[in-house]
Amino acid sequence: MATFNLNINGKTQSVDIDPATPILWVLRDHLDLVGTKYGCGIAQCGACTIIMDGNAVRSCSIPVSAAEGTKITTIEGLSEKVDHPVQKAWMEHDVPQCGYCQAGQIMSAVALLENNPNPTDEDIDNAMNGNICRCGTYVRIKKAIKTAANS
């Protein structure tokens, strides 16, 4: 066990935990931030995507020991008033079906647009290929990303 000070959604939070614990389980089990989802545990599905120092990463495969000193954003930290352009675009296009993968999809999309404000279709495919949507909402996800890019 060790103590880690984590910068999550602009707040510093302290956890005393096994250093090997993936950030995903720190968020879900210890910090009550359950918007980040478990899907595969091996960085293959993207349900657990968070933004770490500006990049979309899979929180299921990064130990908490690697998180100290980084700046983490989760779905809960995107906006106070549900007004992040990506959240708004997701609602405008009524993207979700079951909704389980959508937090991860949104975080990947946010990171994409932060690094590339006007992505081409190919850029979107490349950035989003790590996120599985079992319900098949990809066509709407792409439309929503374009709407968010234009806003």
Binding site: V34, G35, T36, I75, E76, Q87, W90, G99, A103
Partner: peptide, 9 residues
């Protein structure tokens, strides 16, 4: 539920 989904509730 859209709002709850996009905010990670």
């Amino acid at each position: 539920d859209a709002k709850n989904i996009v905010t990670g509730k």
